[in-house]
Design a protein around this nucleic acid. Sequence first.
DNA 1: TATTGTTATACTCTATAACTATA
DNA 2: TATAGTTATAGAGTATAACAATA
Lengths: 169, 169
Amino acid sequence: MTGTADEPDKGAEVSGNEDRMVLGLMATRIGFRLRMLQTLLGARVVNGFAPYKLRPGAFTTMALIAANPGCSQVDLAREGGLDKSALVAIVDELEQRGLAIRGRSAKDRRRNSLFLTPDGEKLMKEMYRVAHDTERTIREGFSPEEITQFFGLLERAYQIVAREDLPAS
Amino acid sequence: MTGTADEPDKGAEVSGNEDRMVLGLMATRIGFRLRMLQTLLGARVVNGFAPYKLRPGAFTTMALIAANPGCSQVDLAREGGLDKSALVAIVDELEQRGLAIRGRSAKDRRRNSLFLTPDGEKLMKEMYRVAHDTERTIREGFSPEEITQFFGLLERAYQIVAREDLPAS
DNA sequence: TATTGTTATACTCTATAACTATA
DNA sequence: TATAGTTATAGAGTATAACAATA
């Protein structure tokens, strides 16, 4: 849009530090460290899941349905960090592929009660192994105590933030 | 596309567990815990940065330029987890707002040497406080030792994964 | 031949709002 | 009036490939 590259001070030749990068202030940002690690791991998972031709979120959705048979789509949206509208397409896909079933709740007929089919259970477990394998070397590089610490800190941090975001504080 | 909602077994009324959700297999997935926490923190940061009318990545870019004056755009892309093409728009914006300068490297004239202006330094520090504040209660909920552990584990996990993704293993 | 910066493009993901049916 | 599910749409972010300049 505004390609003015002929000012005297803009194209000036300068010399600065062209060595290895340091993180500076970003080193103390939890969100930044989280994102950097997740970007790398997420790319691996996308790669590993590619053969299954399922959209992102399908595996998480299947795993949560398996752990909570009969749950509703809003339950899944909340727990999986997605919007409820995004879940429609995911559940559509799972149903069309014969991996999940949309039943109707007997108690509240607005809600869908979601279940995995045997095929869905099987595929979910297979994808879990794929996903878990992308983190294998991290687990191998950590001691069992460190793994426990890591999950504990992640869980506590999440609870702190989630609790604050709920009420009208 | 295929809205067949009249099979007898699809709309069947069923009853399942409609209580609180559990994570099941997802509880042991590092990537899932990372994403859940980051989704929450990211929303806070987006919210806090809204008044500045800068695109996501602009703050990270400024902070990394400040820590590495004279760095190039590919340096920033690699360190910030972005594509180099995404950085063009960000640096364009920073330059147009008078927050950063694109100099030309004297050693390698393909490279831009990036610097923050005094205004850029000032704004970057202000935004750092905003971002840091979104994580305040996590830090307050952790002991100093736990904070150190948390960053240490995050850093080690990142190094493990990053090291594997580089060579042709 | 490889790399930096750039542009254009296509694609995906997400966010929003509106609508329905139920409560 | 509020909630669950659905749909449509617009917007933002990302990835890809191609190109020019330089190494």
